[in-house]
Design a protein around this nucleic acid. Structure first.
Lengths: 94, 94
DNA sequence: CTTACATTAGTCAAAAATTGACAAGTCAAC
DNA sequence: GTTGACTTGTCAATTTTTGACTAATGTAAG
């Protein structure tokens, strides 16, 4: 999901994987995989990309973290209930 | 959190760590750590414990998974927003 | 068709994280 | 000061993740 978003932003800016990969100090194979969700982005990557694409850091980081949550809950039972409960607890701890 | 719950249930049943650990085919040191959140429970452990303590499997599994979510989101920015977004997406994918 | 360039797939060693097991420690009650 | 319940610390072994590199695929232009 964050990968799809990044790809959209990249294409909107007409940038090549090669160019964006350079900003992240990685190679095209890696970024290709990241965009397709086959490898995770590092948090620092997201911050760099927020600058490159002039997006609010918060928006991209939120999507990035949501992605991580979904990655390690899907394929589990009671996903929705668990996320709801996690949300409730997180709010309480505020 | 799931650890606290398990400990409560164990104490309510007046069982010793040693006894419950045996059910999980592990030792007391391990279960002690699990109850205190220093090591994770395996999913299968939770199911065994639901039987031992006569609790609804769903309730314990939900708490167990919520725990996992919180573990890898806390210490991050935008935790609540991310969990909210994850919930939204999870619901859509239903 | 063949070249040139963008992207994707595959592989793999090194690094990092997790796991399970054991020994030793604290602490309270007796 | 011994016993029993629990906790702490350590460690090798397994598993997972990471980064990098090479090869394959796609595609548009000449």
């Amino acid at each position: 999901m964050i990968g799809v978003k990044i790809r959209q932003l990249r294409e909107a800016k007409q940038m090549l994987i090669r160019e964006v990969a350079a900003q992240l100090k990685t190679d095209t194979a890696m970024l290709s995989k990241m965009e397709r969700g086959e490898r995770p982005f590092k948090k620092e990557d997201i911050i760099v990309l927020a600058n490159v694409f002039k997006q609010p850091k918060k928006e991209l980081l939120t999507l990035w973290l949501a992605d991580r949550i979904l990655k390690n809950t899907s394929n589990e039972e009671y996903t929705i209930e668990s996320i709801q409960l996690a949300l409730k607890i997180a709010k309480e701890n505020t």
